[in-house]
Design a binder for these strands. Sequence first.
DNA 1: CTGAAAGCGCTAACAT
DNA 2: ATGTTAGCGCTTTCAG
Lengths: 350, 350
Amino acid sequence: MVTLAEVARHAGVSASTVSYVLSGKRPISGPTRQRVRASIEQLGYQPHAGARALASSRSRIIALMVPLRTDMYVPVMLEIAVAVATTARAHGYDVLLLTGEEGPSALRRVTGSGLAEAVILMDVQLDDERLPVLRAAGPPAVLVGLPGDPAGLDCVDLDFAAAGALCVEHLAALGHREIAVIGESPGVYARHTGFAERTLRGLRERAGRLGLRLLHRPCEGGHDAVAGVLARIFDERPGVSAFVVQNETAVEPLLALLRRTGRAVPEDVSVVAVCAGQVAAQASVALSSVAIPAQELGRRAVERLVAGLARQDGDARPDAGRGPGVELLAPTLTVRDSSGPPPPPSGVRN
Amino acid sequence: MVTLAEVARHAGVSASTVSYVLSGKRPISGPTRQRVRASIEQLGYQPHAGARALASSRSRIIALMVPLRTDMYVPVMLEIAVAVATTARAHGYDVLLLTGEEGPSALRRVTGSGLAEAVILMDVQLDDERLPVLRAAGPPAVLVGLPGDPAGLDCVDLDFAAAGALCVEHLAALGHREIAVIGESPGVYARHTGFAERTLRGLRERAGRLGLRLLHRPCEGGHDAVAGVLARIFDERPGVSAFVVQNETAVEPLLALLRRTGRAVPEDVSVVAVCAGQVAAQASVALSSVAIPAQELGRRAVERLVAGLARQDGDARPDAGRGPGVELLAPTLTVRDSSGPPPPPSGVRN
DNA sequence: CTGAAAGCGCTAACAT
DNA sequence: ATGTTAGCGCTTTCAG
């Protein structure tokens, strides 16, 4: 293995000079820098990560904790993870993959051992058990998602409430007066995953303001579960002319069932989804939808973390990352083929 | 930060004793071990990862390279990644997440810097550009997937050829004589991703042996693409009574289109899939399918890697991991609701 | 602008 | 069974 000392000897300089060429932490004359660079190149030198971490107390590693349970928003999770890794690299960091399984102790472990100098948490619950660890003099952290009490924490998420409102608004503008919401599976609500409840709040609030009727039903994924829920909805509210879906695995079953029961989309009923953009675009009827901005979420999480770490170093630049706090990304609704005006009142159908 | 030296002082022993209590690399008397353990506990000591890596030249980190492009088998990819992380932890390793983006250089980087001591590569292409790095005195590595020439490499994958054969066999046993294959998107074949071609080979070979007609068509995901392919298939081969699908995003569109064109599944046509188990189970008609054993793949990859690393250490145990080479997991076909006997010859329908 | 040298915290001979 | 000690490779004072 090539060491810094060998590079130094080869270049005819001291070890510290090589180090400073690498870090740029002090001015090095042009010629020396050239020679050192050449030696590094020739010898194929690569700094030893462990030695660096030991001497500098900075591992340049960010831990990313993904949920163990992969039952929800799976493509989105992967996309966020990949965006985190990519963005982290762009800032000189590597990413350590942790699963939710180990829970809070994993955070203590990677953080206490100096393995990771910061963490990003995905799939945050309203009263997440990992949060106490973070508040108690924890490491720099950014949550993707919003806990019940985000005080003192750094969070990035889609503004799901606004997303819900946006869906209602879109449907209201088309003339719909009665909407049904096919929600996440009951388990998601039971776990108090914030985004589901926030979406619902946004839906309800805007529906209330615009005077629409709104019916919400949690729903498991899969064809049979959706069939049951759908039947109950039409039973309770025959006047429903539009659906908002927030469960990727319910999307296709819903479309299939509507088709089978002779309801054309969007002629007879409209459907709007809050889900991964790809899912919406590739559905058997391209769905008008609010996409989860997975890449953006991953990217922002890293950027905020890196800004925070720089701040620690005394990089008092006022620009990067607008400081800690909650950052909610504004939702965008993409209109595709699944939403249109409601059918004319029954009996008047042409 | 609590150091090993402090623990040693607190316990009234030398630093090496503490180290050995931790590593178990030499016998320590019961009493001393107790005292050291107690001190560790009380002081909340955590070994410094960097210092350890430096002194021992073992980082206890495995790099996992996932494809950047997330267009295929996405849930499976995440499931593998999570299984890798979980299994690695069970063996005392952590996992570094790399994206395909950086390519071969990422391998050199994490490996040359001692950051990771071994790597797992996912989504391996037939002539993967990362392989030369591995063969050339590279780090211990396991591929999830099969390259064109696996010589000298350690690989784990589903036996896709056997999976294809299994599908044909199942359909043949039901009485089908003419089968169509909805393949992966053309891009996948163009990239020479091995599994798609191996599946096809298995399908063809078994179909040939059993005297079935087989028609293969690559297919993009999404409703429109599937519609086009399906139309062409029925045009060319009106006698087709069964489909094998190997593209998760084509599954629901296919089912929807069959339904719409008045073909009942499985009464009129059978459908068998090679895809994630969850997708098959949750489809609008529960699909008979060969599942991709994601967890098993991730688990085996780590186990083989760890076995290899132990072998390096001189752990000449004959058991663990059956040595390097190619390990193909046997496929399992789960019969669900989408496959049955073909309809009686036309004109005889009841 | 550059060098010398003292650690960073841990492991693993080498002792006893 | 335990202690002593010499590094592992790098960063960062302290000195010029």
